[in-house]
Design a protein around this nucleic acid. Structure first.
Lengths: 293, 293
DNA sequence: TTTAGATTATCGGTTTTATCGATAACGAAC
DNA sequence: GTTCGTTATCGATAAAACCGATAATCTAAA
């Protein structure tokens, strides 16, 4: 065995950052040491892991293959470290979640999770769905929670729960009195929506596929709160997950609108790297999220 | 991560040998270094792995738990080492096999295995079934091939193939002319058998359960060949697996005897440590052995 | 009880390895 | 060409792994 776990950690950090200097920072070591460690690993086995194309460090084919194996091994090694430390598994976890899920669902489940594993340290990293997938594939988070169905060779999607988008407006809005919206209403309304990359917007686009070209998309925001505020101010009508709207409907600040025959259902997924080692913590998290709540 | 793979290797060697000095030998290092490494590991995590009862080093409860995890981890690490070396898996393997299986079946399968994996280095370690189980549980062999059904909490048995024991004598023996043996014949005969610990003998005992007290067990040997020679010389009649006798029946040196209503069937098993990491090599071996042959 | 044999722990010293800071080399962008 | 950001290299230092010798400890036989 001509390598050390330390070398693998360094290799993986470099693979993640695609940059030796920054990798060294995350490991709290000097750049020269990181560089030397990587060279050492490569020389011991007479292989090269990266394409040094000028500035950029990119994993080559060999590197890609070895990286996922190394990630697996280091993950095992860390689990063993925990076993050595007595606590069989404390439950440390890093979750990547899309905006909607992260801010509304993940936080409530976090409470339940921490109740079961008081020692655990959980990071919830909120970003849009496609960034979350990136983090998952780059091993920056242990598990992702996303909205869209994103296909990727290295990604495993586990269906979690159903969700529905709801169209809504302020109580003062002219449409607020209507039982349900006609296609004409839809075309005439001013829409305030999430950005096109978001999961919610993609579901919206699919549901209104035929009408899309005629829609008046008045404003686009990256955050649900901004959309709610804008709609509340009467700037237009919005469409968001029922999850983020429930409270506002209850208090009457906002009112739901019905769109007959438009299916706005979608599925939330867990996203894991294929053949990732499943930590106990990961299992616990999935279990917690599947608990009625 | 306050441990190194090297420390784990040393820990595992010591666990296997129950003796630091001998463990150091197998690792080609000094006794003092091995001792220091173990102490280091224990001190870094403030745990003790062994009961130092005078001379004997015995794994304590913590040690036992950690050992199997460490064995798993090191096994992974070695696989990764192979991946680094380019050959995704050469197929190195250490097989523990009982006498009968090892000398007759394993060697023929070895040929097939090596044909598929020319780079592989395979050790076949022949011992009696219970010793093989010990080796498996002690991680001294990657996979065991045994005859008896041995139960153990940490052992996984995978049925492999059926086998039958056959009673036989020399062509000159008085019984050679009989179509089949009566209970009287069985009691009057001089038996030449394997030792009581052997798988063959245990099957024999079971089959003749009622008659055992009345049997005349004239000679016991640990090796099939010795029994065949003795029977050939007319010293008595024997009972061995059909596998080791086929050739002798063909040439007429020995002749089979029929025992009506006595079931001498048994099953051969693969034996693995439960939750052992299944190397590609292990899978290949099992596959090879299941091939028609 | 003493003693011989075997085993483990400890000590000082040597070699190897990891890491650092400084600096050189390199490529990209202006 | 100059500058900026990045990686490789160099000499030096601190940490560690390891060795041989020796002391301490235990077992079992005399």
């Amino acid at each position: 065995m001509k390598y050390s776990l330390r070398q693998l950690e360094i290799f993986l950090a470099i693979a993640r950052q695609q940059n030796i200097s920054r990798a060294a920072e995350t490991l709290h070591m000097s750049q020269s040491a990181a560089s030397a460690a990587l060279q050492n690993l490569e020389q011991s086995y007479n292989i090269s892991l990266f394409n040094r194309v000028g500035k950029k460090l990119e994993l080559n084919e060999v590197g890609k293959t070895l990286r996922s194996k190394a990630e697996l091994l280091v993950s095992h090694a860390q689990e063993f470290d925990q076993a050595l430390q007595g606590h069989n598994d404390i439950g440390h976890l890093t979750v990547g979640a899309s905006f909607t899920i992260g801010n509304h669902l993940a936080v409530t489940h976090l409470a339940g999770y921490l109740a079961d594993h008081p020692e655990a340290q959980v990071d919830i990293n909120v970003a849009n769905s496609s960034d979350v997938v990136g983090q998952v594939l780059n091993f920056e988070v242990d598990i992702g929670m996303i909205e869209g169905e994103i296909k990727h060779r290295e990604l495993e999607l586990i269906p979690w729960r159903e969700d529905s988008l709801v169209v809504f407006c302020s109580p003062e809005h002219p449409l607020a009195k209507k039982q349900s919206l006609t296609d004409k209403d839809i075309k005439q309304a001013r829409w305030i929506l999430r950005e096109p990359e978001s999961g919610a917007r993609q579901t919206f686009n699919n549901a209104l596929a035929g009408l899309m070209p005629d829609l008046d998309v008045y404003l686009e925001f990256k955050h649900n709160e901004a959309i709610k505020k804008a709609v509340e101010a009467g700037l237009g009508i919005g469409c968001l997950s029922e999850i983020v709207l429930q409270n506002n409907f209850k208090t009457g600040e906002l009112v739901p609108l019905k769109l007959p025959k438009r299916d706005m259902k979608r599925t939330f997924y867990f996203a894991l790297p294929k053949k990732r080692h499943k930590t106990a913590a990961i299992d616990w998290w999935v279990e917690e999220c599947n608990r009625g709540g």
